[in-house]
Amino acid sequence: MSTASTIVYNYLRSKKKFPHVWCPGCGIGIVMGALLRSMADLEIDKNNVVMVSGIGCTGRMPVYCDFNTLHTTHGRAIAFATGVKIAKPNMKVIAVVGDGDGLAIGGNHFIHAARRNIDITTILVNNRIYGMTGGQYSPTTPWQKIGSTAPHGNVEHPFDICDLAKGSGATYFARGTVYHATQLQVLIKAALQKKGFSVVECISNCHTLYGRLNREGSAVKMIQWMKENAINAKVAEKKSPEEIEGKILTGELWNIERPEYTEQYERLIERLGGKPPAEEKPEEKEEAVTQ
């Protein structure tokens, strides 16, 4: 296990990119911490990591991380990540998206990447609101909750992200909260090791907007709520439906095996006599281009 200070030194652009843009108390930093610690655990070479994001509070994460980083347009992180992964199948590609970014404007890319089962680890920070633009309701804002564009209560219903990912073909889905930081680290670690489209939904707090609009209190109070309302899926199995009503099911909720997209495509190339996957080194590929 690496110590906190070596992780900071190794994985953060610690010299000049701080202070960060997030509000004091925001859960995104906890998600980032869990992600970096799980990468340190796996001793992933940071030269071999591409972190892709879209627009929004979560979208700012790559600026602070010392990987190959790609901050793209709103909602398109997974589509850009798809191009990166196919061009360099040996690289570890991570998409960090928010609930609005990843599931509204980017919802189509989310389901299609899941359907292809392309090896992208998607970290979805779900704070149930558009934070950066000022608290508008998102595809995960619960029914009747308040957003700045749902001042009379949300009349829409939220996505169940687990069902969405499962139904679309993802091979791994886990849910954690920013209160359960250690569990989150374990879940992200498992997702990073999964060959296929994996999703970790990280329940986070936007006390600045969601908390204020819905009178759910400060960061501490909102995170306290996560502590009290999260229930591990394994524990929940033994409880009655009444007992788990309204609770957040956490832990690994879906883990199956299915052929992965880039592996399948590499096999196709091999079958057609293009190039065996063994030659898949960046330098050699550049040579091939010039012929």
């Binding site: 850009f80 798809t82 191009g83 196919i86 061009a87 890319h109 299609h112 960046p282």
Partner: peptide, 23 residues
Amino acid sequence: RFIQMEDEIASMAAIIGASVAGA
């Protein structure tokens, strides 16, 4: 490598991502 993306927005995004990765 050829891929049929889900729409033209994704197509443009994917070719940018691939190019940054050296394609």
